[in-house]
Design a protein around this nucleic acid. Structure first.
Lengths: 116, 116
DNA sequence: TTTGCGTATGAACAGTTGCTCAGATGATAA
DNA sequence: TTATCATCTGAGCAACTGTTCATACGCAAA
C-alpha cells in the first residue's frame, strides 16, 4: 500500500507539477551526481587544483599529496573515467592534465560560495 | 620510516614545489569537498534543482521526489548545515529555498560539462 | 490542555568509498 | 631476452553514506 509514500493531505499540486515538468531526465541527474562525487573528495580536489596550474606525473602528484602512488593512480582512474582529466605519455611517464575549463570554473565558483 | 611515501627517484621538484606554494589551506579544501558532497547525491541534486524554480515545503518535495518525508528531512538538514538552503515558517509548514545563486551557477556549469 | 498535522531526530542497517597490499602491465635499455 | 622503472589493477577491509523505522518536537485549533 505504500505506493504514494507521502501521507500528507495538503500537497501543493501545482508546485509539484511544475517541478515535475522542469525536472531533468534521471540519466542526466545521475551524471551530474557522478561529476560532483568526483569533486567531493579532498585528495581528488587537490589533484584537480594542482593540475589547474600545470600538468604533472603520477609520481609528482604522490609526492605533492603525501599519499602512495597507488592511491593516486586509483583516483586518477576515477577522474579519467569521468573525463575530468586526460594524460599524455612521454616514455614511461604519464603526464596528467585537466580536460577542459569547466572543472576549474565549477571549483572556483564553489570556492566563492564557501568563502562568502 | 614512511615519512616520504614516494619511493620514486625522479620527482620534478620544481613542479611539486610550485603546486605546494599555490595550494589552498586544508580547511578550505575540506569545506570545498563538503560542498561538493552536498551536491553529489541524486536526491539532493533534485531538491536543489526543484528549489531553483521556487520554494517548496517538505511534503511537496517528498511527493515530487517519490521518497519518504523523513528521507527528505534528513537531506534538507544536511543542505541546511552546508548553508545551501534556508527555510521560512508559515504556521506548521516550513518552506525551503536556495540561499544564494552560487549553487545554481555551479550546477549549471557542471551541466554544461556533462552535456558537451 | 489536548489533539492533529507537518516536520525533525536518533538508531540501525545495507550499500558505497578510499585506502593499502600484492601482483601485473607496458615502455625502455642492456 | 632480461631487467628496470613508472604506472595500473584487483582484492580486501575500515570508515562513511542514505535510507527506513520509530519516536519526538513545535505550532495551531478546539
Amino acid at each position: 500500500m505504500p505506493i504514494d509514500r507521502c501521507q500528507c493531505r495538503i500537497v501543493h499540486e501545482q508546485q509539484v507539477e511544475k517541478a515535475r515538468k522542469s525536472a531533468l531526465p534521471p540519466a542526466e541527474i545521475d551524471k551530474l551526481a557522478q561529476f560532483f562525487k568526483a569533486c567531493a573528495d579532498p585528495t581528488r580536489l587537490r589533484i584537480l587544483l594542482a593540475l589547474h596550474q600545470e600538468e604533472m606525473c603520477v609520481c609528482d602528484l604522490a609526492a605533492f599529496l603525501g599519499v602512495s602512488e597507488s592511491a593516486v593512480s586509483h583516483q586518477l582512474r576515477l577522474l579519467r573515467q569521468m573525463a575530468l582529466v586526460a594524460n599524455r605519455r612521454e616514455g614511461p611517464v604519464l603526464y596528467y592534465r585537466l580536460t577542459d575549463t569547466h572543472v576549474s570554473q565549477v571549483v572556483l565558483v564553489a570556492l566563492d560560495h564557501i568563502r562568502e
